[in-house]
Design a protein around this nucleic acid. Sequence first.
DNA 1: TAACTATATGAAAATTTTTCTATATTGAAC
DNA 2: GTTCAATATAGAAAAATTTTCATATAGTTA
Lengths: 101, 101
Amino acid sequence: MQAKSVSLDRGILERTAASLKAIAHPVRLAMIDLLRDGKRLNVTQIYQALGLEQAVASQHLSILKEKNILSSKRQGKHSYYYLKHPSILEVISLVLTTHEG
Amino acid sequence: MQAKSVSLDRGILERTAASLKAIAHPVRLAMIDLLRDGKRLNVTQIYQALGLEQAVASQHLSILKEKNILSSKRQGKHSYYYLKHPSILEVISLVLTTHEG
DNA sequence: TAACTATATGAAAATTTTTCTATATTGAAC
DNA sequence: GTTCAATATAGAAAAATTTTCATATAGTTA
């Protein structure tokens, strides 16, 4: 079976799906929300704020970093994480609006 | 557009993650893109346009329907699918912008 | 260097998704 | 009712994710 051409090509669809998959997790959404307003928090602050094991937080943070949602900067023995694309918060609020009504 | 700045509770995080997970798949993104501009297409039109097996298309469509991204209306022996929340397209274009640069 | 704190990584088990194949259902036409 | 076309669903195998637990690495201070 042959596909007609669509406006989004396969590569774009894959990358977009990968980004969405990265944020499509309650813990990772909570992390993104926690880092709103330009906040920069280290791993300890994040896992304590969210009530997670350190290793669990670290793993989710690295997924978000790998998928370009977060960046981090090491300062001494702390790694500070922050949103690389604050517009990702708009994605969340848009999705929230689809839950209304 | 301005992002909401709310602290999200567990239920909202779960529902938001579920919605995002629903669209976080290349095939389902392609379906959403295909239904832009208010288009209403039946299952045959969709699986042929995307080069999918009928059963695969039907399964992905039902996931999108179950998660409130699409609606469908049966007309005779055809089921026409359409976007329930066209704003979901903005989600995709926002994510696309995070791939630039 | 040793001890301590903060963060990252690995790997197996558990769970969830995706795909595949076949079959079931629905509605129209006869 | 039978047949055909369109769509939906079931069940199981395959693939991808998540969780858990243990350990490793990096940086600081003594």
